[in-house]
Amino acid sequence: MDAGRRHFARAFRRNGREWLTFLLFAAPNLVLFAVFTYWPILRSFTLSFTKWNLLSPAPKWAGLTNYRALFVDPIFWRVALNTLIYAVTVVTVAQACAFLLALLLNRPLRGRAVFRTVAFLPHVTTTAVAALVWVIVLHPHYGPLSGLYATLGVNGPNWLESTGLALLAVIAVGIWKEIGFASLFFLAGLQGLPADCYEAAALDGARPLSRLWHITIPLMSPVIFFLLVTGFIAATKAFDSVAIMTEGGPVYPASSTYVYHLYKVGFRDFQAGLASALACVFFIITVAITALQFRMASRWVHYGE
């Protein structure tokens, strides 16, 4: 104990100024994090052991009731599954498309700026707006597709009112928005790649496809990893598009995501305690998944020297 303190004192004498500088740099942000992020998390954690409808004066202690109620609720599992399907589909499909798009856009083409702008437009569009636009694009009456159905003389699918297609519609918006963002980063990464590697490869007579596989992708792996992690985290938090397009319907959990469910339970069904329990479980799951991603990353991400 005493030795530990002495050790610390010595370390402080040696590094104290450095430590103070660290604090000076990090503290302003840490204060904000403490007030507006860590405190809400702690609060949610304590609330998750209570029953509270937000209106009554004080939450009532309920022990583990909320957690028990969660895990036996089939809606909870369905919503978790939906979120997983949503996140995995959006991240993989969008990134694959974005990578291809970035490879195309990276060529010296005429009108490249126009292509680039159009490709990136979806990302800068407010999710709320994007969702609204897609509501009418998919709409069996107002949408461009319905013109097509009319010419064919068939009754087209009613995307948002079909339990099978509603989640797909929400996913489509997610992919549409993510492609632009991911291709922006891929393009930036591609343009920063060292030309000498390619020159060496060209001298070796490597074919384009093998160059892509052996040089481009490994060199791009930090970008890919970055997009995978951030994209996945963002995707698991999908909320706006669900709220606007389907409200989780048509048959409730059909197209609901985890965060939308959390919101619905807390604010529509007046169950703040249960919503807090949902939030805590969500946090633990995403931290675990992200940690897993980081662990696996050491196998295939190359940061260079």
Binding site: W39, S44, T230, V259, L262, A275, A279, V287
Partner: peptide, 20 residues
């Protein structure tokens, strides 16, 4: 500890932050 906060959905912070 800082990066972990990325996994917090904003909807979860709504009520406590409003109270603050």
């Amino acid at each position: 500890l800082v990066l972990a906060t990325m996994m917090i959905p904003d909807e979860m912070k709504l009520v406590p932050n409003y109270l603050t």
